[in-house]
């Protein structure tokens, strides 16, 4: 089976953020899937991936929580691919996969907790976990996307922001850095590739994998605001009109701290922040509301009208 066929129907693991602050990402991912003829089957009764909070307290509990999601997809739904659009979920499922392949004590803990919870333990290799970027790139590809574009993103300059968890740590992403066609952990480009196929002009953005301060946005908000402000300024200096995101934590952090930077530090950076799925959706001819632009904190409507997307 080719990757294209394999990714046509995948188990969808939205994760907690996409039901809350990242709902626009949820809406736009589903809308883009529908517009592209791809089938998303939500993982039944899914649970938290363990996020950062559980992992910091007990990494093996996080491994179990993530493994349960994969177990449900594999053993109860018969799926062999799980697509997680959130960087945190994607990272945690990949980490659990790595742990269960390489660490016998993790296998032991997951086995015991799965027994206790009354479900089959997940076994390494039962599913392939992918990100939304892998999904569109693998199922449709740049050429396929170009054929389907109705409203080109031509004239829009984009800084693609991947955040810190999409590529790190490298050892949990064995499929990356495998030469032409694979994703790069040092200079990721899948989002750049897809948005370029939709007609956008990507700018050279040096902070595409830099920390957004998302992890301490509550405990040390001022540092988070300064980190975000730095990202916004660098994107603006690189000539971007828009920062495209692919992580709900990064996205909400950029939006909230853009406002906070103006209030607390008196620094306003006028740059739009949109999920890559929103941009691709509008390029496919979907209306802004269909891809949840109204659910974003920042207002991009006048910009989108000016560019002929709304």
């Amino acid at each position: 089976m080719t990757t294209k066929d394999k990714y046509k129907k995948v188990a969808y693991y939205p994760g907690c953020a996409l039901e809350g602050t990242g709902h626009a990402y949820n809406r736009s991912t589903k809308a883009v899937g529908k517009a592209l003829g791809l089938d998303l089957v939500e993982v039944k009764n899914w649970n938290c991936c363990g996020a950062m909070e559980v992992k910091n307290i007990d990494p093996k509990i996080q491994t179990y929580l993530s493994s349960r999601v994969m177990s449900v997809a594999a053993n109860e739904m018969g799926m062999d691919v799980v697509m997680a659009p959130c960087n945190g979920c994607y990272h945690n499922l990949k980490k659990a996969e790595y742990d269960l392949k390489n660490d016998p004590s993790s296998v032991d803990v997951v086995g015991k907790l799965s027994d206790k919870a009354g479900h089959q333990a997940y076994k390494s290799g039962q599913v392939e976990t992918i990100h939304a970027l892998d999904w569109i790139k693998g199922a449709i590809g740049e050429e396929g996307l170009k054929e389907r574009i109705k409203n080109s993103l031509a004239g829009i300059k984009i800084a693609n922001y991947y955040g810190c968890m999409y590529t790190r740590p490298r050892h949990i992403f064995p499929e990356k850095d495998q030469g032409p066609g694979s994703e790069s952990t040092s200079k990721p480009h899948f989002m750049d590739d897809l948005l370029a196929a939709a007609g956008a002009e990507n700018v050279d953005f040096p902070l595409k994998t830099a920390c957004c301060g998302g992890a301490h946005t509550m405990s040390d908000s001022d540092t988070s605001t300064r980190l975000v402000l730095n990202i916004l300024k660098a994107a603006k200096m690189a000539g971007a009109d828009v920062i495209a995101t692919e992580c709900p934590t990064c996205h909400s952090g950029l939006e909230m701290h853009q406002i906070r930077a103006e209030k607390r530090l008196g620094e306003k950076v006028d740059i739009k922040i949109l999920y890559f799925t929103q941009l691709i959706g509008m390029a496919l001819g979907l209306k802004p509301k269909k891809v949840g632009v109204h659910e974003n904190v920042s207002d991009s409507m006048s910009f989108l009208k000016e560019k002929g997307l709304a």
């Binding site: 950062m52 301060g213 540092t223």
Partner: peptide, 18 residues
């Protein structure tokens, strides 16, 4: 910003600086 923030919380958390 990253390092100075991280220095305050070093040792807490496996991956992030929370």
């Amino acid at each position: 910003l990253f390092v100075s923030g991280k220095m305050q919380v070093a040792g807490l958390g496996e991956f992030c600086c929370s």
